[in-house]
Design a protein around this nucleic acid. Structure first.
Length: 672
DNA sequence: AAGTCTGTAAACAGCT
DNA sequence: TAGCTGTTTACAGACT
């Protein structure tokens, strides 16, 4: 497994022609990360560690193991947990993505398969799940504590306050140890598969654990508060002005930690359970309405370990004042809750920070920030590619690394295996870009990740030809001047706001080189249009003739990438010329109109309104009919000369006889 | 191994 | 003359 860091790879990159050719290797190398522990191994490790401590009761151990196994249970468990309504706060990563758990795929595969947004969503989901399990566990522990305390009181054997405090202290220690183990497990989960940590980071999480969790030795300090250790915190509570019987004070406000946590991107729910890293929390279950109470929801008391059913708010208030009045028990429970919240906040802050670093490392490796306003420095000699990388975080006011807009959306474009993360790092010629060899439609990808590419210095995983075509097709007239193409590139992709000499030359080169780009002289001067026939034609290998490609497709499907856009692409791929006006109107300018699968879901304007070029779309039956119609001999195919100096570009409308083969193979090709 | 595709660089010509 | 536009050639790397 390669653990070579990205930066090291860049430095060691051979100074080839462009100095970028090696970056694809860098991407692969960085994807592995310092992992090597299987999920099951991690779980065993944690469980064993807890057991060896000897401070976990059998019941607790069993429960903990259940929690662990639930977390390690693989894809079905994940989905199952979500489906059970255990919480609505878990990010809804698509099932297909969730299925790609570390138990099923290698880290490299995960990185290659998952797009940046998917990867982030997956990470967040794991975090959320683990935190949630932690909370669930704490909740159960609090219930036990509650019952324990209740039993003691009902037994008529009131223990001295000190004894009670000591018992709680021990329990607190136990909880914290459990939490540390849980954190270990969480971190291991994160480390083992999805991301690669820098070597100096590899040992970081565990080292930071003691910081994240309150050391048991610190507990007396916490418990001491403003009183003596073990002393019930009643005095302290009163001094803190806490009114446990009040209705306005939440546990959260009470639990404001003495050590202020860093700014967090989370919210703490009224019951003290923080949501994780997202605003997608389920507001339905804990929603605070004007007539509600933070501790009251779903007809029951949300006091930790209580869950007493109350018909209405009034009954709940009564219940709250009677059952949860200011006494030792409530105070102790409050303390526990405070600890829980504090620990979770600390942990969340650390995990959030780590996540940011991970995302930055994986997608927008931070380096010298270069605002877009900075003069571009075209380096004729080329290696500017790998020299400059703008941190995407700089592009966002909140400093967070913003994934593509489809980050957690159920529909995300598949980042095909092999494409990997090469393009993510903006390095090197990303050949075999997705729109050409895989199913991901460029327009769909762009539509979904528009904001991402617009702001992040990430090289789009498409060929120049695909991008040029997309640029042209996005315009109402389906034609652009060279300068307008330039503008589209810079407008749509932050990446192209630099290296102007390089990519502009490439654009010109592609325009001239590919027959699919037709230069048309019109009143505006020279504009470039797309000959869809040529564009489709130029794209081997065909699906029908490439078992390897078929295999790739199947494997791609098996990875659960059958998302909506993909299905749309598949659907349209069955009728690749379905939208081809040229099929309907041979001889017109229609062959320059958008029609390929790439336009699925594209923000493409409706067909031009300038008359002849806006025929209605064909239905599948029509397509089959048009296949025959289009075989009409063409005279203009070879004619790449600019069309008549009219507004309507009309290069070749129907192809030469050899296009028959093309037509027959197109459906399959569309899949590629 | 050969062919193809793609990206990059560069030279060159024509035009404004 | 400089800059832009467009064409062409060459080369390298990845992929089929």
């Amino acid at each position: 497994m390669m653990v070579e860091s990205a930066s090291e790879t860049i430095r060691s990159a051979p100074s080839g022609q462009n100095g970028v050719g090696s970056l694809s290797g860098q991407a692969d190398g960085s994807s592995g990360g310092a992992t090597g522990t299987t999920a099951s191994g991690t779980g065993r490790e944690v469980t064993t560690g807890a057991d060896s401590n000897g401070e976990m009761s059998p019941a607790e151990l069993l429960h903990f193991q259940q929690q662990q196994s639930g977390a390690l249970g693989g894809a079905s468990s994940w989905v199952g947990v979500q489906g059970t309504g255990l919480t609505g706060r878990i990010l809804q990563v698509p099932v297909s993505v969730a299925m790609m758990s570390p138990q099923m795929l290698t880290p490299q595969q995960m990185q290659q398969i998952l797009s940046p947004p998917q990867l982030q969503a997956l990470l967040q989901q794991q975090q959320a799940l683990m935190l949630q399990q932690l909370q669930e566990y704490y909740k159960k522990q609090q219930e036990q504590l509650h019952l324990q305390l209740l039993t003691q009181q009902q037994a008529g054997k009131p223990q001295p306050k000190e004894a009670l405090g000591n018992k709680q202290l021990a329990f607190q220690q136990q909880l914290l140890q459990m939490q540390q183990l849980q954190q270990q497990h969480l971190l291991n989960l994160q480390r083992q598969g999805l991301v690669s940590l820098q070597p100096n980071q590899a040992s970081g999480p565990l080292q930071t654990l003691p910081q994240a969790a309150v050391c048991p030795t610190d507990l007396p300090q916490l418990w001491k508060g403003e009183g003596a250790p073990g002393q019930p915190a009643e005095d302290g509570v009163k001094q803190e002005g806490l009114d446990l019987t009040g209705t306005a004070t939440t546990a959260t406000s009470f639990a404001a930690p003495p050590k202020v946590s860093p700014p967090l991107s989370h919210h703490t729910l009224p019951n003290g359970q923080p949501t994780v890293l997202t605003s997608r929390r389920d507001s339905s279950s804990h929603e605070e309405t004007p007539g509600s109470h933070p501790l009251y929801g779903h007809g029951e008391c949300k006091w930790p370990g209580c869950e007493t059913l109350c018909e209405d708010l009034g009954q709940f208030i009564k219940h709250l004042n009677t059952e949860h009045a200011l006494d030792d028990r409530s105070t102790a429970q409050c303390r526990v809750q405070m600890q829980v919240v504090q620990q979770l906040e600390i942990q969340l802050a650390k995990e959030s920070e780590r996540l940011q670093a991970m995302m930055a490392h994986l997608h927008m490796r931070p380096s010298e920030p270069k605002p877009f306003s900075q003069p571009l420095n075209p380096v004729p000699g080329s290696s500017s590619f790998s020299k400059v990388t703008v941190s995407a975080a700089d592009s966002f006011p909140d400093g967070l690394v913003h994934p593509p807009t489809s980050a957690a959306a159920p529909v995300t474009p598949l980042r095909p295996p092999g494409l990997g993360s090469a393009s993510l790092h903006g390095g090197g010629p990303a050949r075999r870009r997705s729109s050409d060899k895989f199913c991901s439609p460029i327009s769909s990808e762009l539509a979904q990740n528009h904001e991402f590419y617009k702001n992040a210095d990430v090289r789009p995983p498409f060929t120049y030809a695909s991008l040029i075509r997309q640029a042209i097709l996005e315009t109402p007239d389906r034609q652009l001047t060279l300068n307008e193409i330039y503008n589209w590139f810079t407008r749509m992709f932050a990446y192209f706001r630099r290296n102007t000499a390089t990519w502009k030359n490439a654009v010109r080169h592609n325009l001239s080189l590919h027959k699919c780009f037709v230069r048309v002289e019109n009143v505006k001067g020279a504009v470039w249009t797309v000959d869809e026939r040529e564009y489709q034609k130029r794209r081997p290998p065909k699906m029908t003739g490439s078992p390897t490609l078929v295999k790739n497709m199947i494997s791609g499907l098996s990875y659960g990438a059958l998302n909506a856009s993909y299905q749309a692409a598949l659907a349209e791929s069955s009728f690749p010329l379905l939208n081809s006006p040229g099929m309907l109107n041979p001889g017109s300018a229609s062959s320059l109109l958008p029609l390929s699968h790439d336009d699925v879901g594209a923000p493409v304007e409706p067909l031009p309104s300038n008359g002849s070029s806006s025929p209605p779309r064909l239905s599948p039956p029509q397509y089959s009919h048009q296949v025959q119609v289009k075989e009409e001999p063409a005279e203009a195919e070879e004619d790449r000369q600019p069309g008549p100096p009219l507004g309507a570009p009309n290069p070749s409308a129907s192809g030469p006889p050899e296009d028959r083969d093309l037509e027959e193979e197109l459906p399959g090709e569309e899949l590629s």
